[in-house]
Write a protein that binds this DNA or RNA. Structure first.
Lengths: 188, 188
DNA sequence: TCAGAGCGATACGCCACCGTATCACAGTGG
DNA sequence: CCACTGTGATACGGTGGCGTATCGCTCTGA
């Protein structure tokens, strides 16, 4: 009853090619034929599994987790926040993935489906960071009066602004000072 | 010796059409024919004045100042900072211009010339804000120890992050609280 | 072993844009 | 008044993507 392994294999290589194409060409210049070519797959195979470009791109992005997930179990809450922010900085500097983000942001301006996906996706990412920060507030690592949602936006704002608007993207090593700047250690 | 007025007229309507097209279609789907059509101009006229798409888009963006410039003369330095940030928020929510920014950020990932323009342009905008903040530091409106460049990135980061990654963009009315959060009033 | 399903290849007509060339026309400035 | 030049229209061959259809091959799983 298991699905034909050829199906999952096709889907995997096509999704991977979509990310490559998206990074290289952007959403507007991404073509189904280009994806199929890059995936080493017949065009018909792509049309067999996805109805259109938007669905294809959304599906590819949905499956694009990074295997390396930061350790959010050990260390103080502040350590965990710094590790998570460092991880975000790494993702935001990854050559392929970060260009996919730029393409997604741009495409979201013009396509409702991509906009909904984009907003949901980044909202989920903010929730993750908010949860870790909140545990830091509970632990006394951060000031009791911390506005968690504002802190999340302040931190991610710096990371993404520097990546997409300047030539000095945030590195993982910058994570700690940024977290400190946004949420100074309480004087206990 | 003055230039034929038809030339400047052509350039103006084409540049305007480029911004419309860029906002509606993004960089990848922007076509010269589409621009000419939208401008109500022959395709040859566009090719007569610009060598290619990148030059055309860069030129259009270079000429795309907003006529409304915030008052940076009167009021305290803090007032001026708040007004400038409010202005940035307005520009970042302007339907046409903000979509052009998204298109530019995306295109800058893949085209050197657009990247250089983009980095230069946004660097200039940061310098403007930095100068006003610096005068506020000198006036004692802000803490003497303020890291001006970091404050600039913190403020613009929030504005752009909220505009492009969330469904709650910053409004002009949000400018004051954001400035206050990043640069608290010194206790004198 | 074998029926069925997924596959890549190929070809289809259609359409849009590319960048260039040519043309008659009208605005411009001397 | 007139030579000049910028103009929009139109046409060109070329390219490449669209979405669909058809093919024979091969892998899969009962």
């Amino acid at each position: 009853m298991a699905e034909d392994p050829r199906i999952e294999r096709s889907r995997r290589v096509v999704r991977d090619a979509v990310l490559d194409e998206l990074a290289d060409s952007g959403y507007g210049d991404l073509t189904i034929e280009g994806v199929a070519r890059r995936a080493g797959v017949g065009k018909s195979t792509v049309y067999r599994h996805w109805p259109d470009k938007a669905a294809l791109v959304i599906d590819a992005l949905e499956h694009a987790h990074h295997d390396l997930v930061p350790d959010l179990e050990s260390g103080t809450a502040r350590d965990r926040v710094v590790r998570l922010v460092g991880h975000v900085a790494e993702v935001a500097t990854d050559a392929r993935f970060s260009r996919c983000i730029a393409a997604l942001v741009d495409a979201a301006e013009r396509d409702v489906r991509l906009r909904e996906f984009h907003h949901q996706y980044s909202s989920d990412r903010r929730s993750e960071l908010a949860a870790v920060i909140r545990s830091g507030v509970d632990d006394g690592d951060f000031d009791r009066a911390t506005d968690v949602d504002a802190a999340v936006v302040a931190i991610l704002g710096v990371v993404f602004y520097r990546r997409f608007m300047t030539a000095q993207p945030v590195t993982a090593a910058d994570a700690a000072p940024i977290v400190d700047a946004v949420m100074p250690t309480p004087l206990t």
